[in-house]
Design a protein around this nucleic acid. Structure first.
Lengths: 194, 194
DNA sequence: CCGCTAATCCTGACAGTGTAAAGATACGAG
DNA sequence: CTCGTATCTTTACACTGTCAGGATTAGCGG
């Protein structure tokens, strides 16, 4: 158990953790590769070997971000059984992720730094999208219904991540969730009349 | 008419134009103050006198961005008369702005670089928000209805700005607009029954 | 028209950034 | 045990934002 072993042993995941912490603290704008390396206790050029350049690091981080994003939706869905309730719950999970990790949310949806042509990242993103599609399907929804749920969930989440929903700040969490659920229900396909 | 007058004469607006062009070409991430200065044909330290630092420049640019954002909504509203149609049209204008100037849209809604505590910027942002509120008011809508319209319009616009709405890319503009109008109508307060 | 102040712009410097090249170290297969 | 190779460090370079100080000129009272 040397103080400073020349070989870290698990630098790749250590760098990803450090990058996420750095992103959470200093934000997407003030993100620094050298600072990430310092946080991981390693020289500033060490990340290059694992990720190539900063884009490679952020691409890997975004991939992990999409996995957590999907997990956040699924966690909320587990509390519901009816298809409509599950779709609404997924929207709440969408918001959860944006509130818990706003910078990761921005890295995934509003940044151009990751390489979205990367196979792993693309796959992770498609998985999240396909999951949303699968939620609308049992409701007999079409393309417009998928877009509706997605846009509403994303709109709420992105505004919340940017702290642009001051109207929500005065409410306690339960009331806030109930209000968002109401918004999401508006856009779901209505039960067929008759 | 000297070749290079020592005093530019109108450097402030020239820098703002250069900054906007730079933002459109290289994106929010690769934005460089020195490059903006070079584009305006001026030394790298010249902007400091007019804007202080890069945050000052981006704050001024964001302020102008909010004005154009509001104008984009109003331009679409002019084509409608009914209150409901006006609210829907505003949503289309929201999308117009995000598609025409995605990086400016991101500067305003997804960046932390501008100083949103700045009086001018704050006022410009509030004006846009207040305008949205004024659109929902004649519909008898409450707080939830404002949030609904805002979130739906913002969700569509932000996804479009990030080119995450591939389902829309195959459609011609008229069909796309008609689809978005349908999404926006979903969230507006329904006509009171009876 | 003169002269002075203040606004405007430039030059030079510094710390910090990402990345590439080359050297140091240690792991693991043979 | 040896040696190739993966891993990490050191060094260097161009670029960034910001600051200090100097150069230029516009504006204006006299």
């Amino acid at each position: 158990m040397a103080e400073k072993p020349y070989h870290h042993g698990d630098l790749r995941v250590a760098l990803l953790q450090a990058a996420e912490a750095e992103l959470a603290e200093r934000g997407m704008e003030g993100f620094s590769l050298r600072s990430v390396a310092k946080r991981a206790g390693v020289s500033h050029a060490a990340p290059a070997h694992h990720f190539g350049d900063v884009q490679g690091l952020l691409t890997a981080l975004a991939t992990e971000g999409f996995h957590r994003f999907l997990a956040a939706m699924q966690a909320r869905e587990a509390t519901a059984v009816e298809p409509r309730d599950r779709a609404v719950a997924a929207g709440i999970g969408y918001l959860d992720f944006a509130l818990d990790r706003p910078t990761l949310f921005r890295l995934i949806f509003s940044s151009k730094k990751p390489d979205f042509g990367n196979a792993d990242l693309s796959e992770a993103g498609n998985a999240a999208f396909d999951h949303l599609v699968g939620l609308v399907e049992p409701l007999g929804g079409g393309l417009a219904d998928i877009a509706a749920l997605w846009a509403m969930a994303h709109g709420v989440a992105d505004l919340a991540a940017g702290q642009r929903l001051r109207m929500m700040e005065g409410m306690d969490e339960a009331a806030r969730i109930e209000m968002i659920k109401g918004l999401l229900r508006r856009v779901l396909p209505q039960r067929q009349p008759r």
